[in-house]
Amino acid sequence: MTTSLSANPSTLLPLELVDKCIGSRIHIVMKNDKEIVGTLLGFDDFVNMLLEDVTEYEATPEGRRITKLDQIFLNGNNITMLVPGGDIPE
C-alpha cells in the first residue's frame, strides 16, 4: 500500500502513528469514559483493533472496575483517543 503524500500535507499520517504501535502496548480512550490498555496486534481502516493481554477500566457507581482479557477484537466506532504506551490511566 503506498501513501500519497501530495494529497496530504502532513508528513506523518495519523494512522502511521498507530502502525508504529503494532507489537507494543497502547492505551485507548473510548467515547463513554471506558479505557482499554493492551498490546496492539493489528488494525484496519476503521481502526477496529485486535489487542492482546488487555485490561479494561470502567467507571461504575461503585468505583473503577477492572477486567482482564486475553484477546479482543475492538470495535473502532467508539474510540476517542489512542495513546502510545500502556501506562495505567491515572
Partner: peptide, 25 residues
C-alpha cells in the same frame, strides 16, 4: 501499512470458539 492481516486472521479462526461479546451498554 495498517496490519489488517492480523484482524482477518482473527476473524477467520474465531468461528466455533467460545467468546464474550461486550456491548457499549
Amino acid at each position: 501499512m495498517s496490519r489488517k492481516e492480523a484482524l482477518t486472521h482473527f476473524m477467520s479462526q474465531i468461528h466455533g470458539r467460545p467468546v464474550v461479546v461486550k456491548l457499549n451498554s
